[in-house]
Design a protein around this nucleic acid. Structure first.
Length: 437
RNA sequence: GGAGGGUUCGCAUAGUGGUCUAGUGCGCACGCUUGGAAAGCGUGUGUGUCGCAAGGCACCGAGGGUUCGAAUCCCUCACCCUCCGCCA
């Protein structure tokens, strides 16, 4: 949610931002409606002032006659007031519908474009050549992750579908053990990093935090919903952001950094036919997410955005997976996002980089909806500072089992064996996953 | 699943239809006092919104209703606590 004042004062910027994101919204209609809202609110306030004054008169009236006269007057006023209040309710209803549709304004550095095809590469890394790394070459035809997992009895999709339906899966043997090894790796790395609070957060949550984070009402069809009206979250961001909803934080405690774990559920509506083989795109997975709240400053947001992006890159570098970072174009940004980097790791079987991490910042778009504030230092060093909305950011730390796709494909050998990344060997207790020759 | 109690200005409490635009205590801020501190005394002490300002309006868990007027009465919901039942 943007501040209506900001929208009124910067309607051209807001309109241009929406256009860049490819979102249709008529700002003039919203402002015209807001004019009505303001005018009506003023009239109602004046009537209420009259009513409040009369109330004192009635209470202190010397005679019943006097009292009666004012009451009759107020009865008439009340009828009038009621009509206006109902009119205001109608306007507010419409106003809110429009307000939650207004997207946040993308950063200047976000490239124009319609879809992920228009995202711009920022940098590349590969274990062979480091920065500016080339895409790796195989001297044999690389198998797909789906084939590799099956060949080593690390996954079972048929029984997955039998039990859990389309996109259902079981992970077995070294497939399951790789996930557990990765969990321990990422936990060890983030617990050695300053400032992150480890959290296990709810996956099932009320509607409010979904609206607060910007997933609702726009993406209703991407979410699973329970018969009690709760939703299953596609990311720990939802619950982690909800954690401090309606609270005021201390400036000295900022930035707040969560290392949040949760199961994730995504309906993948509209992805029919995409990535149907293997475990790249599935309905249920687990993820460690970095969620950050910081003071209300663009510079601070940018600094932390680079930091949490770097955290994810460090992990991929340790795993020695070739990757690139892209800056997402306007059309590939979510409603609330100001800027987003996707990190994509190399997928040899496809000859493409595929997304493993998504790192974005929102300014106060989410926290305005969630009502998360902090008290700023007062300008003169005395008394209270003003309350401000914190800024929010998030990035994947590690999502599983998706990362297995890139691991097994990049670490496959001509003989069919899969090497285990060096950093995982201690956790796995071996160096190689042997094929069943 | 059943029964009861609760949710008030940072904290604790008062408040059962009209001087409640919410009292008191604690805390906090500033000032006085003091050699310094404590105590004491005094003043102040939320958020949002409209307004150049003076000031107005809204907010007593949330949403509705009754009334000229609601923290207070009625309804619905959320959460917390206690007990009973069930379960781990």
């Amino acid at each position: 949610m943007l501040d209506i004042k900001f929208i009124r004062e910067n309607k051209d910027i807001v309109a241009a931002g929406a256009k860049k994101k490819g979102i249709k919204i008529d700002i003039d209609t919203l402002i015209a409606l807001d004019d009505k809202r303001r005018a009506l609110q003023l009239e109602i306030d004046q009537k209420r002032a009259e009513q409040n004054a009369a109330s004192d008169t009635i209470a202190s009236a010397k005679s019943d006659v006097e009292r009666k006269a004012v009451i009759v007057q107020m009865q008439a006023l009340k009828e009038n007031l009621k009509v206006q209040e109902e009119a205001l309710q109608e306007i507010l209803k419409e106003w809110r519908v429009l307000m939650v549709q207004v997207p946040n304004v993308p950063d200047m550095s976000v490239p124009d474009g319609e879809s992920d095809a228009d995202n711009k590469e920022v940098r590349r890394w590969s274990p062979a050549s480091g920065d500016g790394g080339d895409t790796p070459k195989f001297d044999f035809e690389p198998k797909t992750h789906s084939e590799l997992l099956l060949a080593h009895d690390m996954a079972d999709y048929e029984r997955g579908a039998k039990v859990a339906g389309f996109r259902g899966y079981f992970l077995k043997n070294d497939g399951a053990r790789l996930v557990w090894a990765l969990e321990r790796l990422v936990e060890d790395r983030f617990m050695n990093r300053e400032g992150f609070t480890p959290m296990i957060v709810p996956s099932m949550a009320r509607r409010e935090p979904f609206v607060g984070t910007g997933y609702l009402p726009q993406s209703e069809e991407d979410l699973y919903k329970t018969q009690d009206g709760d939703y299953l979250a596609g990311t720990a961001e939802v619950a982690a952001m909800g954690y401090y909803a309606d609270e005021t934080l201390e400036k000295k405690d900022l930035p707040v950094k969560f290392f949040a774990f949760s199961p994730c559920f995504r309906r993948e509506a509209g992805s029919h036919g995409k990535d149907t083989k293997g475990i790249f795109r599935i309905h249920e997975f687990v993820k460690y997410e970095q969620v950050v709240l910081c003071e209300s400053s663009h510079e601070e947001s940018v600094k932390l955005h680079e930091e949490i992006t770097g955290n994810a890159e460090a992990l991929l570098q340790e795993l020695k997976l070739p990757y690139r970072v892209v800056v997402n174009c306007g059309g590939d940004l979510g409603l609330g996002q100001v800027k987003k980097y996707d990190i994509e790791a190399w997928m040899p079987s496809e000859g493409k980089y595929r997304e493993t991490h998504s790192s974005s910042y929102f300014h106060d778009f989410q926290t305005r909806r969630l009502n998360i504030r902090y008290r700023d230092d007062s300008p003169d060093g005395q008394g209270h500072g003003t309350l401000r909305y914190v800024h929010s950011l998030n990035n994947t730390a590690l999502a599983m089992p998706r990362i297995l796709c890139q691991i097994v494909e990049n670490y496959q050998r001509a003989d069919g064996d899969i090497e285990i990344p060096e950093v995982l060997r201690a956790y796995m207790g071996k160096d190689v996953i042997k094929s069943n020759r």
